[in-house]
Design a protein around this nucleic acid. Structure first.
Lengths: 221, 221
DNA sequence: CGGGCCCTTGATATGAGTCAAGGGTGGTGG
DNA sequence: CCACCACCCTTGACTCATATCAAGGGCCCG
């Protein structure tokens, strides 16, 4: 039973956001609800003292927002829509009622939070150990999702955030991200569209994600 | 109401570990329980394909272990004692009973998991944005705990893990950690014992944690 | 007292950041 | 519908922080 199934019970009011619109802002009152992303993409970020943004994560359909502030009064981060979005607003008291009625729902909820802890631990582990190329390739593979049955069925994966956002998220600079993506493209491992990409050679990317060095094909090819 | 108060109800059997003893190992069955650290220090880590360890976190008294595998069958990481430890084993079914009986315990538990998510997000944010010196100083300040009422009351803080462990945790190398600690000591900001340290000038460390550059006092001083 | 391991420190290498310029794309207004 | 403009992306040259490689020293344990 997955987090999606939780939401079959816990449906709340729906909310629609246009690209660039905020869902909530750092420092606001939490307001007694979680958000479940039904459609579209958002970014969760903090604004530093010096005005720079720190990306916490990118949210996709099926992700929850607000799981870092359960029991807190104020938001730790801001969320804005990167594309048009549909978001469910799931009130804590709905969840509480659900947990009274459905014996397993509390376990499901705990397991959902636990998975989120694990995801964050994994993200931190990657930041600790991986170089620039490795981080970028892991990021792409994660966005592309699991391998299709046939290599030819690789789908176009959206990349709705700016290079600046990607580089903040990966702890790199826009220049390094751009260079590395260009190199991957030159080698034919991926193709790049304006706001998306397609995996062309998953095997090569998986090698790189394991730590293999990136041999840069000459630009003149 | 804190996570400690949760454990006043949810007491399970106690467990004692000697230094170096494992609490659980990556790949083992989870076994239906969380662990609560009563005394001592442990490290939580994964073993990579290449044999290297990846430190996930260090656990101190008051910390929970196993929150990343609720609802999972197998452990994602190993935990070993860095010092002699006392650990409470809190079975899921104890927690479940508690949540039936005590109306707020479910909220408390969710809030505890939520705080853990926030901690991991913060750790990741630090890894993304901070340089070597900043990471090390933040690590030391976190270990030292909140400032005492008088600067002269700074306590000796234990540092029971090896330099290798620290460097893995911070995404650095043992050499860099050692150099930076030496520089902090030379400047008189900290003093270093064999398995611990004392904050000598918290103000200076807080400056460094905010991103101030580390002016290295000449070695000959 | 002896040995091994970890910590420290130095010299050098290298990957990523910085600074800066040029080009493409999307959006806006005429 | 087209043209202009702004912003972001790309690319290059250079710098710098941190990793790497390696040697010496000290601590702890046997």
């Amino acid at each position: 039973m997955t987090s999606l199934e939780l939401t079959q019970w816990a449906l709340g009011s729906q909310l629609t956001l246009g690209r660039g619109e905020p869902l909530f802002r750092q420092g606001e009152e939490v307001g007694g609800a979680l958000h479940f992303v039904r459609g579209g993409h958002l970014k969760l970020y903090q604004t530093c003292d010096d005005g720079m943004q720190r990306i916490i994560e990118f949210a996709r359909p099926g992700d929850w927002l607000g799981v870092d502030t359960i029991g807190e009064q104020f938001r730790h981060a801001s969320a804005v829509a990167l594309t048009d979005c549909q978001v469910d607003v799931v009130e804590y008291r709905h969840l509480a009622e659900l947990m009274d009625e459905e014996p397993y729902s509390c376990d499901l909820f705990s397991a959902m939070l636990s998975r989120e802890i694990d995801r964050q631990q994994l993200a931190a582990a990657i930041l600790r150990s991986a170089g620039a190329c490795q981080r970028i390739v892991m990021f792409l593979l994660q966005r592309a999702g699991p391998a299709p049955q046939a290599p030819s069925q690789e789908m176009h994966s959206p990349l709705p955030m700016s290079r600046q956002d990607i580089s903040d998220y990966l702890g790199l600079t826009p220049a390094t991200v751009s260079r590395t993506l260009s190199a991957l493209k030159r080698n034919g491992w991926i193709s790049l569209g304006q706001r998306g990409f397609v995996v062309q050679c998953r095997a090569a990317l998986e090698q790189l994600a394991e730590g293999a060095p990136l041999a840069i094909a000459a630009q003149g090819e």
